[in-house]
Write a protein that binds this DNA or RNA. Structure first.
Lengths: 143, 143
DNA sequence: CTACATGCAAAGAGTTTGCAGCCCA
DNA sequence: TGGGCTGCAAACTCTTTGCATGTAG
């Protein structure tokens, strides 16, 4: 069994959830380069399993911390969460709709924590979305 | 005419858009303390005007920069944009669903700009969502 | 074997669209 | 007056739910 699949199986097992075919298909589909929309995930999986099972898997995975929903534009996208990944944010290009992961930046993280603390706010999680134009699209522009 | 209403009228006029009753109702409804969901906005307005007009107004207002969509949890909320406001981010309490505006912080803004620039990314806009527990709910918790 | 998970089908949100009539500029 | 805007109704997309059947442990 491959590395991420093993961890996946472990997490399910820890929570007394069955390792089923449907869940496996959804998990596998999520192992992509970029975060994907629910629509894309459904398209990938619906050939094999029912829509309802996809939604149910996503809900379960989110509860178990296997995946997280990212805000990209108005909609959300899905990506395997930091247990299967690392904490990071994204740049999203409004031109080509590309999503560029940003390396983790402790200075940024610290500042956010500081600001929240100043308001007596206990942070659980945070997300940042930076919209703009990526390098590639800027180059095209100036042609 | 009151101050924000005047500016609202100006922006519409600048773009050769009519100042109609429906748009006025939507704009007025948006002048609330907190960002509101589309559902809440519809509830407020649908007594007076049709749902379709509400959606159409929101779309227009967003194009004209009158309002912006914020990501709160999985859904978005609407709030008058910085032309009618100031640039800021929010803390959202997962316990009471309260939304606490954060004062503008130039250090944070600069860091974000720096990180984007390092990736040769031309920032247009950004949003931050910090989820956690607000002061009030923390107090309740320890009772 | 038994409880949990799935597929199916239908219902329910949320949002968009075409069109005829209305209203702002 | 005329083009843009609205209300209405219907269509569409996305998501959830109930129930009978299937399957992992």
């Amino acid at each position: 069994m491959t590395e991420p699949n093993l961890q996946f199986a472990l997490v399910l097992h820890e929570h007394n959830k069955s390792i089923t075919n449907a869940r496996h298909i959804v998990f596998t589909a999520l192992q992509a380069q970029e975060p994907m929309s629910m629509k894309e995930l459904v398209e990938k999986c619906v050939i094999h399993i029912d829509r309802a099972s996809i939604y149910r898997s996503v809900e379960l995975f989110e509860q178990l911390g296997i995946l997280q929903r990212l805000q990209i534009g108005w909609k959300y996208k899905l990506e395997l969460s930091s247990s299967f990944n690392y904490h990071h944010h994204h740049l999203t290009c409004t031109r080509c709709n590309g999503i560029i992961p940003l390396p983790e930046d402790s200075q940024l993280e610290k500042r956010l924590e500081y600001l929240a603390a100043k308001m007596n706010f206990k942070t659980i999680d945070h997300q940042i979305e930076i919209k703009g134009i990526c390098k590639k699209c800027q180059t095209k522009e100036t042609r």
